[in-house]
Design a protein around this nucleic acid. Structure first.
Lengths: 148, 148
DNA sequence: TTGATTGCAAACGTTTTGCAGTGTT
DNA sequence: AACACTGCAAAACGTTTGCAATCAA
């Protein structure tokens, strides 16, 4: 955990590692794969630093996104959600959003690469990034529904 | 055009086809593949009915979305954008969003079906819908950039 | 020391809501 | 005539910004 924080400090290049930024990053590290919103991070951060302001959370998230330390997601619930980039591999992943319980499941599979290749060739469109979300019902919710 | 409107009127099932709703639908029909925002639709609708209110636009769009007459998209510009479902075929399509000129290009290709099949099998996730967006640079912008 | 960063409160842009009045069926 | 629907204005929501004070380097 400390190692991760140290790595992120290095990625800040030039920007200061303030206590507030540390608290935000720690909250993100302690909640991997959670896709936290700014408000949720604010509540978590407040546990560690009661005086932290919501604006600081937003400004920190903007900075971290700019430095590609995290990704901003939009799952259609009216707020941005954030996820630390797992730098071990720059592997894109997709999200399954359960329409029943709102759970988000990650899919690592990169079959999409085929599609990207086709698009680049046929449309002359140079792809930089993609957002892929599948909406449906997860196994658990699907089973529950069939029981009722 | 009149045929399309008639079809949509039938899809309204039980809900009234008011002049305001007609104006919104007409504006959508007259601007196919435009991905209009609520505000943009408001301006278009006002040309046909100067007294129409923005709240009515939003309420109409909510209704049309609920009835699956249109799709709501989120391209990350802070507002929802709407597109009539082309009911001739329930064919999903993807969007290419140009990071330079913001143009949106549609891709009909459904290679994604392979991926969906895999996900359903491996994750037990029953897919209802998907959102796929590719961000990159369109041919025109890419060529311009290379010239400079 | 000094410019980057902070908290606060006010402002922002989009969307939603309460309500009294209107109009479609 | 009934009740779905409307316009308006105010409120709600997530997010951004101006500013004076503070702090990390």
């Amino acid at each position: 955990m400390k190692k991760e924080l140290e790595r992120i400090r290095e990625q800040l290049k030039g920007h200061k590692m303030t206590p507030q930024r540390r608290v935000v990053v720690q909250s993100l590290l302690e909640n991997p794969d959670q896709h936290l919103s700014a408000e949720e991070l604010y509540i978590l951060a407040k546990e560690k630093d009661a005086d932290i302001g919501l604006a600081t959370i937003y400004r920190t998230l903007d900075l971290l996104e700019e430095l590609k330390i995290l990704h901003r997601h939009n799952f259609g619930d009216g707020r941005s959600r954030y996820e630390l980039s797992q730098l071990q591999s720059e592997h894109h992943h997709h999200h399954l959003v359960c329409l029943t319980c709102s759970k988000i499941i990650e899919v690592e599979e990169d079959l999409l690469q085929q599609l990207e290749f086709l698009i680049e060739k046929e449309k002359g469109f140079r792809i930089i990034d993609h957002r892929v979300q599948f909406y449906g019902h997860c196994e658990t919710c699907d089973e529950k529904k069939n029981k009722v």
